[in-house]
Amino acid sequence: MALDNLEVLFDDLGLMPTEEQLQEMLGCFMDDFVHSPFKIKDCNVKVIMEQSWHKNFRGMPETFVHLITRESKYTGRREFDHERANRIHWVKQILVNHTSPKVKYFEYADEKGVLKYHFWYEEGSFIVILKPVQPDLLVVTAFCIDEFEKQRYRKRYNAFRR
């Protein structure tokens, strides 16, 4: 699938998915990362398959839960994020198309000094972040970038390119 053809998965995804929607999202995740593994920079792209303890998604793969939830700034707990979840099938497409001019690649060390690889599909306002865990690359997260955050990521991208 080309980046130009990426669309949201559901037109009617609400604040919490239906069981059918959740299973379809999980199916996309399993197809993309478990049933058809792939490499970037000669490294296997990996996900954490251990079961999550999240109350709403107990027993589902940890990385899957991380890709469909976000940490609340108010409660500190992870909550379903319909914008992120509705684009779960974008994650692999952005990664396999990482050499496209539409994907801006940069490296950035977080506040703990951990280097992470960023794959920013700016046109779709979506970013995928991987972390090197030798000898592999681990999917850390993926999320939508709003207008406020665009400036921050553009600065990081420009600083990396210098």
Score class of each variant (00 low, 15 high):
residue 1 M to C: 04
residue 1 M to R: 12
residue 5 N to L: 09
residue 6 L to C: 13
residue 7 E to S: 12
residue 10 F to W: 04
residue 10 F to Q: 13
residue 11 D to K: 05
residue 16 M to T: 14
residue 17 P to I: 06
residue 18 T to H: 08
residue 18 T to Y: 11
residue 19 E to V: 06
residue 25 M to K: 11
residue 25 M to F: 06
residue 25 M to I: 09
residue 26 L to K: 10
residue 28 C to Y: 15
residue 29 F to P: 08
residue 31 D to R: 11
residue 32 D to I: 01
residue 35 H to F: 03
residue 39 K to Q: 08
residue 41 K to P: 02
residue 44 N to R: 02
residue 45 V to W: 00
residue 46 K to D: 09
residue 49 M to W: 04
residue 50 E to T: 14
residue 50 E to P: 01
residue 52 S to D: 15
residue 52 S to Y: 10
residue 52 S to N: 10
residue 52 S to K: 08
residue 55 K to Y: 10
residue 61 P to K: 05
residue 61 P to N: 12
residue 61 P to W: 07
residue 62 E to C: 04
residue 64 F to N: 11
residue 66 H to M: 03
residue 66 H to Y: 13
residue 69 T to P: 06
residue 70 R to T: 06
residue 70 R to Y: 09
residue 71 E to L: 05
residue 73 K to C: 07
residue 75 T to C: 00
residue 79 E to N: 14
residue 79 E to V: 13
residue 83 E to R: 14
residue 87 R to H: 12
residue 89 H to K: 06
residue 92 K to L: 07
residue 93 Q to V: 08
residue 94 I to N: 09
residue 95 L to R: 13
residue 96 V to D: 02
residue 101 P to V: 11
residue 101 P to N: 10
residue 101 P to H: 05
residue 104 K to H: 15
residue 104 K to C: 05
residue 109 A to K: 14
residue 110 D to A: 13
residue 110 D to V: 11
residue 111 E to Q: 11
residue 111 E to I: 13
residue 115 L to I: 08
residue 116 K to Y: 10
residue 118 H to Q: 13
residue 118 H to L: 12
residue 119 F to Q: 04
residue 120 W to G: 00
residue 122 E to F: 03
residue 125 S to Y: 15
residue 126 F to M: 01
residue 126 F to D: 08
residue 127 I to E: 10
residue 128 V to K: 01
residue 130 L to I: 12
residue 131 K to Y: 01
residue 132 P to A: 15
residue 134 Q to P: 02
residue 138 L to T: 06
residue 140 V to N: 03
residue 144 C to L: 02
residue 147 E to R: 14
residue 149 E to T: 00
residue 150 K to W: 03
residue 152 R to M: 13
residue 152 R to Q: 15
residue 154 R to H: 12
residue 154 R to A: 15
residue 155 K to E: 15
residue 160 F to Q: 01
